[in-house]
């Protein structure tokens, strides 16, 4: 009773320790519980197998259509496949709270909301990076993808920032999933639209004006462009503008995601719609 009172009575962000505990330990526990594809039997075919064949498919389609060289498709798709984690994974870590019936318990806790929210993004980002690295390895092994070894650290930085940015977008979809009935429809649609609009397989300037306008407001677009320039030997400084734009877009989606999370939390309490479908 006394202990319970102490916990309940504590301010929400009483100490830095509890903040980081929720951020790191909570984030990992949540990921293990809510990311549906974490078992090797599902992870390997879905998170590694599907990206592998996506890269092979589009590289061959590119070869046939004559749009660009193999490097164009390997870099575009290897960066884009991070959204297997950044879109689907991020959506699951938020929306599955509701699907699995744990949302009410979660929101009843006094845990710091920023830690709760940000903690979910860390495993998603790590996993997205892993999938992208796997994509580049696939390109090197099966499609003769090559780039100067000296560019690898800069490329790694850009891919990491792009995964972070894309995770912001995924968290926004996840926040909507706290209220929406079928957010996974939106996640699937977003994944495929990114293939079309983010310059993954089609040069942006080949798209109609309205699609170009949308693509400039999406994550991945500027990250992929920067990654392609780095892979072709450009310096990190020359892509600084693209990186800044990618981060700004990611931060905007991330901020929007947290605002939606808090809004849906408050309105769910108000309208008693936490577990309602």
């Amino acid at each position: 009773m006394t202990a319970g009172t102490a916990v309940l009575g504590a301010p929400r962000s009483s100490s830095l320790t509890s903040f980081f505990r929720v951020l790191f330990v909570g984030g990992i526990i949540v990921y293990r519980a809510l990311f549906n594809w974490i078992r090797p039997a599902i992870y390997i075919p879905t998170m590694l197998g599907s990206p592998l064949f996506q890269i092979l498919f589009f590289a061959n389609l590119g070869k046939y259509s004559g749009v660009g060289d193999t490097n164009f498709f390997v870099v575009g798709n290897a960066v884009q496949v991070c959204s297997m984690s950044a879109i689907y994974g991020a959506t699951m870590t938020l929306a599955n709270e509701r699907y699995f019936g744990t949302l009410a318990q979660l929101l009843a806790t006094p845990a710091n909301r920023a830690a709760l929210f940000l903690g979910r993004t860390l495993p998603v980002i790590a996993n997205g990076l892993l999938v992208s690295v796997f994509g580049f390895i696939v390109g090197a092994l099966f499609l003769d993808f090559s780039m100067p070894a000296s560019q690898i650290p800069a490329l790694a930085l850009v891919v990491t920032l792009t995964v972070v940015s894309c995770t912001g977008f995924g968290m926004m979809l996840g926040s909507i999933g706290i209220r929406a009935r079928d957010v996974f429809f939106a996640s699937n649609l977003a994944y495929f639209l990114m293939l079309l609009m983010c310059g993954v397989n089609i040069p942006i300037d080949s798209l109609p004006g309205w699609m170009q306008a949308i693509s400039k407001a999406l994550p991945l677009t500027h990250g992929i462009a920067a990654a392609r320039l780095l892979a072709s030997g450009e310096t990190l400084g020359s892509v600084a503008g693209l990186i800044r734009t990618e981060l700004l877009i990611g931060a905007t989606y991330g901020f929007l995601a947290f605002a939606l999370f808090r809004y849906f939390e408050a309105s769910s309490r108000k309208y008693a719609s936490l577990d309602r479908f």
Binding site: L61, S65, V67, F184, I202, S206
Partner: peptide, 27 residues
């Protein structure tokens, strides 16, 4: 909704990608 995505939206997106690729690739 999943099958609406798979049978209607996804083929439209993939066909659009192929159209743009074939057009810009000179096919």
């Amino acid at each position: 909704s999943f099958f609406v995505l798979v049978t209607v939206l996804q083929p439209l997106i993939f066909s659009t990608i192929a159209f743009f690729m074939f057009k810009s690739g000179g096919r």
